[in-house]
């Protein structure tokens, strides 16, 4: 079931299309990464979906028909740089925004306690936000996005500014949240997208240049390159390598052989068997990391 349909969404600033006629649908219960280099239009897209800025052109429709007037009721939004009222405590802030989202004071307080527990800030409940660290603010930011049990959670660069520990915490949290909500988050870090998302939407210069299931994109990328080097080149090495059926291309660069193969597991076994049988003086055997990284660069440079 689709939760949101975005059709030809465009935002123009100073005659430049920051977001350029993008269309996509978000399926309910999925975790989708909005991926792209800095300046691709990720934040602008999210802000339009959060109802914070108006689109120049195009439509955003939620499935709850009669409620579409104000998206903000069922969207929880974490800005890229969350800023709070520094003079409030974490608990006070959550209760405050909870009440703004039409919870009663009592409901908001209960929910705030629940969320502080979830994001691991229970011990800092009464501390002024001004004293929070960056990672704590990010977690509080996620908590405030969840306060009114939104159908869609949108997180703008939730982990980019964090240290490895903070990043790990947030990713684990997102994995938790994924179980019962739809998440749309933006990132320019591929690893994060790979780790938690089911689908990606790749943006560049305001346009969608690729979208789909992360596994599908992986399988398109199934050709792998293996770097091989010998202390002394054996005779007919090129020919022998090319004879192996899973190998489809061999090149030699600076004394190193770049062997492109289709199925890594089979190819690796066949290659190693050959080297052992022939007793070739192998000095290097490295499977190059082809992952979304290459795909990303290729797609962005297209």
């Amino acid at each position: 079931m689709s939760l949101i349909t975005v059709d030809n969404l465009t935002k123009t600033y100073d005659k430049k299309d920051v977001v350029d006629h993008i269309s996509f649908t978000l399926e309910s219960g999925k975790c989708v990464a909005l991926l792209g280099p800095n300046g691709a239009g990720k934040t602008t897209t999210l802000r339009m979906l959060a109802g914070f800025i108006k689109a120049t052109e195009g439509t955003i429709s939620f499935d709850e028909d009669e409620l579409t007037k104000d998206f903000r009721k069922f969207v929880g939004y974490l800005p890229q740089f969350p800023v709070f009222h520094r003079w409030m405590s974490g608990f006070e802030f959550l209760v405050y925004v909870g009440q703004l989202a039409d919870l009663s004071k009592k409901e908001a307080e209960e929910r705030a306690d629940e969320l502080l527990e979830l994001v691991n800030l229970k011990d800092f409940k009464k501390m002024r936000i001004g004293k929070y660290s960056g990672g704590m603010k990010q977690r509080l930011g996620i908590a405030q996005a969840l306060i009114h049990r939104p159908k869609l959670i949108m997180l703008d660069e939730p982990v980019s500014a964090l240290d490895p520990i903070g990043r790990r915490e947030i990713l684990n949290l997102m994995r938790e949240l994924k179980k019962d909500a739809t998440i749309l988050f933006s990132t320019h870090i591929l690893n994060d997208a790979e780790e938690v998302s089911d689908e990606i939407i790749l943006l560049n210069n305001g346009k969608v240049i690729e979208k789909g299931n992360i596994n599908d994109i992986h399988s398109e990328q199934e050709t792998v390159t293996i770097h091989i080097a010998f202390s002394e080149d054996p005779k007919f090495v090129m020919e022998r390598l090319k004879e192996i059926e899973s190998v489809f291309q061999v090149t030699n660069e600076r004394g190193e052989y770049q062997v492109s193969v289709h199925q890594l597991l089979i190819a690796r076994k066949q290659l190693l068997d050959l080297f052992q049988k022939e007793n070739w003086p192998l000095t290097k055997f490295e499977v190059a990391k082809t992952s979304l990284e290459d795909f990303f660069i290729k797609a962005v440079n297209k």
Partner: peptide, 13 residues
């Protein structure tokens, strides 16, 4: 300027 506005206005205010 600080950005709190964005946080508050992302709720149905």
């Amino acid at each position: 300027r600080s950005g709190v506005y964005e946080m508050i206005l992302s709720k149905p205010v």
